[in-house]
Simulated scan of single mutants.
Amino acid sequence: MNVYKIVTEQICQQLEQGVVPWRKPWKDGVAVSWKTQKPYRGINVFLLPPGEYATFKQIQEHGGRVKKGEKGHLVVFWKWLEKENEETGEIEKFPLLRYYKVFEVNTQAEGVPSRRQKPEQMEETFEHDVIGACEAVIEGYVDAPEIRFAPGEAFYHKVLDYVQCPPLRDFESLSGFYGVLFHELVHSTGHPSRLNRKGIAGRSKFGDEDYSQEELVAELGAAILCAHVGISSERTLQNSASYIQGWLKVLRSDARLVVQAASQAQKACDYILGKDTEEE
């Protein structure tokens, strides 16, 4: 089984259990490398529960051990290979998807101290902090489209380049409001003047492959942005049985879809946040 199929199968297993990986609560933290304390990126964000992860070798080298019976979590990465073009003689690079296994050091290992600083309890001020962090993301989107607030519908108009979202008063929760707004802002990064993504810049239609991938890009991107500001990306509507079954059908028909979409979602979020996209 190739890496794309392994990743897709893990995502599908979560969907079959009624869990939408890109809609899980992020406020408890994100998955980071134990060694560097840097958050995982791309599809790894949705494969790993919150925690600190290290390889079997890293745990051993630091005097620890993996608990008996524990199974490693999948992490994928791109390995760049070089090959000489037979016609031109030039060296060309192309990416190959690979994977390895990691273990959560606090629950799956012993003898390896946590390197993460424990966040202070912020229950009383959480709501105010969330608003500020979310607004900072929106304000930091340097060439953002116009955002219009009107009841009833949320969408990105790719021809006129504007986002419409119901006003905050129409949402039961702050996280629901910002999750919807982030979803539409991620769509907007596909505009030809920005990242020129096929699902937005092309002629995609409802239900076709490009449309499905673009919707997944926006779903994953909204989850990444919610993680960035420390709020839950949960939306009850999006956890319906029909929604889950629909995604199972799409993902099982194309094993590459979720990995490619996660990569595009990461680029979209980096664009909104004003970060240089890192080579995975």
Rank of each mutant, 00 (worst) to 15 (best):
Q58F: 00
Q58D: 04
G64N: 09
V66R: 11
V66T: 06
K67V: 11
K68Y: 04
G69D: 15
G69F: 15
E70V: 09
K71W: 08
L74Q: 06
V75C: 13
F77V: 03
K79D: 11
W80P: 01
E82F: 02
E82W: 02
N85A: 06
N85F: 02
E86S: 09
E87H: 04
G89T: 05
K93R: 13
P95R: 00
L97D: 12
F103E: 15
F103K: 13
E104T: 12
N106F: 00
K118N: 11
K118Q: 15
K118S: 10
K118Y: 03
Q121V: 11
Q121P: 00
E123F: 07
E124L: 11
H128V: 04
V130E: 02
V130S: 09
I131N: 02
G132L: 04
A133I: 00
E139L: 13
G140L: 13
D143L: 13
A144N: 06
E146P: 00
I147A: 01
R148T: 02
A150P: 00
E153Y: 01
F155H: 06
F155M: 02
H157C: 09
D161W: 06
Y162K: 05
Y162Q: 03
V163P: 05
Q164V: 11
P167M: 01
D170A: 07
E172W: 01
S173Y: 13
S173G: 12
L174M: 13
G176V: 05
F177K: 12
F177G: 09
G179T: 15
L181M: 06
L181R: 11
F182W: 10
V186I: 10
H187R: 07
S188I: 03
R194M: 05
R194I: 04
